[in-house]
């Protein structure tokens, strides 16, 4: 199997419409295009068709119209080539199953193994490296239910790494996860981006997006905007995507200039806030680690 064929890695979604058998039209004429080496956020409210679009990318639902292509090939072919990896949400996994951390990570290698799914020494080596990378090697013999939320997430991240895919899909990766794991996930995503992979993150947590994503797709049944993050994340687009769901706090009479000039403290109880400056540009951005450092 040639996991490193010369063709360029792209994701092309072209005019995709998904209508379920009960007549519900989940997404309509969605189109966007992503190229190798990017971390893209898929942002939308619940029921916006976000998860349907994810399913279309994984080949679980067949678009009623349009194409989903990975490196110009249909999704089903991409699956067979081990191009797609998926990191599930915690509630999608039954943690009572009698499997160890090691068993789970080896499942990422099944696509490379023979029909008896016997792990070669290479499979074991890659699985070990993947576990080391997320600092879970010492936990390899634990039953998966005996882990903390963050550890659980890292095990499934290791499985995705072991799969050596080109595209990695993460569904709400920061739900129920400690800060240490959150940072580890972000570091890992940047590493994978540097290797030329496409990482697609589905999330409703707006504020964290500018920390690690360089592209975004805003969806509300239709794709409202897509492209580089600072072009997409404008107040106008976000209002369109989230409608009445978002809470707006306008600091009309900002005292920034009267005081120390630059720094603002924003205290929030739960999810990270998104801070936009005057004119709607992104105010808060984690510039130290981002690849291209778009100055607002």
């Amino acid at each position: 199997m040639t996991s490193l064929s010369p063709e360029k890695l792209t994701i092309t979604v072209r005019g995709v419409t998904v209508t379920y058998s009960n007549g519900h039209r989940a997404i309509e004429e969605a189109s966007f295009h992503l190229e190798a080496g990017c971390i893209c956020a898929l942002v939308g409210v619940n029921g916006s068709g976000k998860s349907t679009l994810f399913k279309a990318l994984m080949g679980f639902v067949k678009p009623t119209d349009g194409d989903v292509l990975i490196s110009e090939r249909p999704v089903l072919e991409a699956q067979k080539r081990n191009w797609i990896a998926y990191v599930p949400q915690a509630e999608e996994v039954d943690w009572t199953f009698p499997v160890s951390v090691w068993d789970v990570v080896l499942m990422g290698r099944y696509g490379y193994m023979n029909f008896l799914r016997m792990a070669s020494s290479n499979d074991k080596k890659i699985a070990e490296e993947s576990l080391q990378k997320v600092q879970m090697w010492d936990f390899r013999d634990r039953q998966i239910g005996e882990l903390s939320g963050g550890q659980k997430k890292r095990v499934f991240l290791a499985r995705a790494l072991a799969q050596q895919s080109r595209v990695i899909l993460l569904d709400e990766p920061f739900t129920g996860v400690d800060v240490k794991t959150e940072n580890a996930i972000i570091d890992l995503m940047r590493e994978l981006r540097a290797e030329g992979k496409i990482i697609l993150v589905s999330t409703h947590n707006l504020g964290s997006v500018p920390d690690f994503c360089d592209h975004a797709v805003l969806i509300n049944r239709r794709v409202l905007a897509w492209g580089p993050l600072n072009e997409v994340f404008t107040e106008e687009n976000l209002t369109k995507a989230f409608g009445g769901v978002l809470r707006h706090f306008h600091f009309d009479k900002s005292t920034i200039d009267d005081n120390d000039g630059r720094s603002v403290t924003l205290i929030t109880d739960d999810e990270r806030p998104l801070v936009l400056g005057k004119g709607g540009h992104l105010e808060h951005r984690n510039l130290t680690n981002s690849k291209e450092g778009n100055e607002p």
């Binding site: 699956q79 599930p88 696509g111």
Partner: peptide, 8 residues
Amino acid sequence: IQAQVLGF
């Protein structure tokens, strides 16, 4: 889901 993602 993993089984399907792997193309099984």
